[in-house]
């Protein structure tokens, strides 16, 4: 039976899709058969971030409505074995995610894949609730910023109340905090909430810290999950997070500002 992971945040723009793409790619790179699903009906973007937008024919809603089979809609990633992308519809709205249809799709995917990564839409409405309903594990993507932390707190409350596991009184959804767009320099200056602050406020185990990095934008520009870029600090941080998720011990990186000599710093600035 596959494990369903929802990537959620409440707030928009914190990096859910980037995280879903990186995480799914990371799991597949480690040999796990993985599918990543776009639950953001009407605002499809996972296909762009995964670089398969030119191969989408059928989507999640077509499958739910019985217009296409699951295999027709699943897109096999060309770079990574074991990785499949399940795009959503751009022309429908989130109400098209009918409960029975989604239940059926998730059952089928659980039989077929080891990991099912669900990219949740922002918000706490039907789309987000549908995405988190089947979760066995949740990755709460949070920026070190007050509105994002508050929204994460809200979504954690919803996970505890409205997931299938909560409904069936099974063991609760496994929760992981992933801090994204983190800038150790700004934390040091007292301008940004620190890892410790966010951990303390949300009281969740920390899965990883993804540093703010221009390589994330570069990756989404080219449709390549950032984890595939070995030169990217964010990519390395995602790799660490995936390793921790499947039980490996890895030391936290990117907590402190990179040590740079003053000279290098000056040269760096002059060059940029």
């Amino acid at each position: 039976m596959g494990k369903v992971i929802v990537v959620t945040s409440g707030k928009g723009g914190v990096g859910k899709t980037t995280t879903s793409a990186a995480f799914a790619a990371g799991l597949a790179l480690r040999g796990h058969k993985t599918v990543v699903i776009d639950f953001d009906v009407g605002l499809r973007n996972l296909d762009l971030v995964m670089g398969c937008e030119r191969r989408v024919v059928f989507d999640f809603i077509n499958v739910i409505n019985g217009d296409a089979t699951l295999n027709q809609a699943l897109i096999r990633d060309k770079r990574i074995d074991n990785l499949h992308i399940f795009p959503t519809s751009q022309t429908r709205d989130k109400d098209a995610l009918k409960r029975e249809g989604v239940d059926w799709v998730m059952r089928e995917l659980r039989n077929e894949f080891e990991y099912i990564v669900c990219d949740s839409p922002a918000g706490i409405e039907h789309g987000a609730l549908t995405a988190l309903y089947h979760a066995d594990a949740a990755i709460i993507v949070t920026n070190p910023e007050i509105s994002s932390v508050r929204d994460s707190d809200r979504i954690i409350g919803i996970l505890a109340a409205k997931s299938r596991r909560a409904e069936k009184r099974e063991s609760p959804v496994e929760e992981h905090l992933l801090l994204t767009r983190y800038s150790p320099e700004r934390v040091k200056k007292g301008e940004m909430l620190s890892v410790e602050d966010v951990k303390e406020i949300l009281s969740l185990p920390l899965l990883g810290i993804i540093p703010e990095s221009p390589t994330v934008l570069k990756a989404s520009n080219t449709g390549m999950p950032v984890i595939l870029d070995p030169a990217s600090p964010a990519g390395r941080a995602y790799e660490d997070a995936v390793a921790r998720f499947i039980g490996e011990q890895r030391e936290m990186r990117f907590v402190l500002p990179e040590r740079r000599s003053l000279l290098r710093g000056w040269f760096g600035r002059a060059a940029s």
Binding site: I146, G190, D197
Partner: peptide, 15 residues
């Protein structure tokens, strides 16, 4: 106080 610690306090109260 640095703005981050103000943010933390405000968050703790509202949450």
């Amino acid at each position: 106080p640095a703005s981050a610690s103000v943010a933390k306090e405000r968050l703790q109260i509202v949450l």
